[in-house]
Computed example of a mutant assay.
Amino acid sequence: MQDRTRIPVIDLAPWLSGDADARAATAAAVDTALTRAGFLLLTGHGVSREARAAVRGAARRFFALPQEAKQRYAVSVGGRGWLGRGAEANGYSEGTATPPDLKESWTVGADRPSGDPATDAFWFQPNVWPQREVPELREAVEGHLAAMRAVADEVLRLLAAALGQPGDFFTRHTAHPTYTLNINWYPGTAVVGEPQPGQYRIGPHTDFGTVTLLDRQQGKGGLQVYVDPADGGAGWEDAPYDADALTVNIGDLMARWTGDRWRSGRHRVLPPSPEAPAEDLMSLVYFYECDPHTTVTPLPAPLGRVPYEPVDSSVYLKEKLDAITVG
């Protein structure tokens, strides 16, 4: 743990042990972490390095395909398939004008229809798979999706305890949730060219949903987290890294739910560094949300600090996705 970042490592094992004191101590540590930068590192989650490496390996084979092959799977933001460079500018979501993000993404998500055609048309689109080019990608990714959903629901139960709420306070809203996995490829300058002024692999932003589970690789052009100097931070700081850990941060919906007791963690991914221009990184980013059209109402004081107006989760999320779309 780096004290200056105030982003601790939380071991999930004591929480899962069933011991009341261990569970209470873990919940208290989570509450403290999320009132600061909105981030923590989670170990003891049970998702093996080998399984995560299998996703990366298959995804790399897809991203290595010729442009014309990838183009067959091209989609816009919110779709299922390939997002090429220039499709997103995440800084737009917070009103920061940046050039488009320097990444490519393979995107999948919740695909079990709800039975409501209007909801299913966007939130539960069928996933698309490059079966001809990279047949192994589907099995690896579907296994990862199942593992991430299980971890995400356990994290939500832990968050409920950290707030002193019933265990199903959040998971009662995840019976048929929306979620997305972005496999983000961050190639070096030989692929993306020299970054423009103010251009990032991902521009500064907060995530939009409840919790994000990130499996990332460390690099010079890697993840930075904004830690407010008022909380003893230094502004933008390199995020701490643990190869066994998932990086967990809360998004806007969770921050609103808690009335800003917990902060939606602001972050960015740096462009390729002049010190390592060939650096090639890949992140597996699982965005967990809630059931479509969940009404997110902030907890009252003294837990909640800002009495936000209730929002429809689907309306809020769609507005944010539209905001980061380039063109």
Rank of each mutant, 00 (worst) to 15 (best):
R201T: 02
F208G: 01
D231P: 02
D244L: 11
L213G: 11
A230Y: 10
T212S: 09
Y241A: 08
Q224I: 04
T206Y: 02
D242G: 14
K220R: 07
K220G: 01
E237H: 08
Q217E: 15
D215G: 00
Y226H: 11
P229A: 09
G221N: 03
G203W: 00
V225R: 02
L214F: 11
D207C: 01
G232E: 08
T247C: 09
V211Y: 00
G233M: 06
T210F: 04
I202S: 07
Q218S: 15
Q217Y: 09
D207G: 00
K220N: 02
N249W: 09
E237R: 05
T210K: 00
Q224R: 09
V225P: 00
G221Q: 01
V211R: 00
G203F: 00
E237N: 10
R216L: 15
D215S: 13
F208E: 02
T210A: 01
V227D: 09
Q218H: 13
L246T: 14
V211H: 00
G233K: 07
T247R: 01
G209F: 11
T206W: 03
T212G: 05
N249T: 09
A230K: 15
V225T: 05
A239S: 00
V248Q: 06
G209V: 14
P240Y: 13
G219F: 02
Y226D: 08
P240G: 11
Y226I: 07
A243R: 14
L246Q: 12
G222Q: 03
Q224C: 08
D244N: 14
I202F: 03
P240I: 11
I250Q: 13
L223Q: 05
T247S: 06
P240K: 12
L214I: 12
L223K: 06
E237P: 06
R201H: 02
I202P: 00
I250C: 13
A245M: 05
L214T: 07
T212I: 12
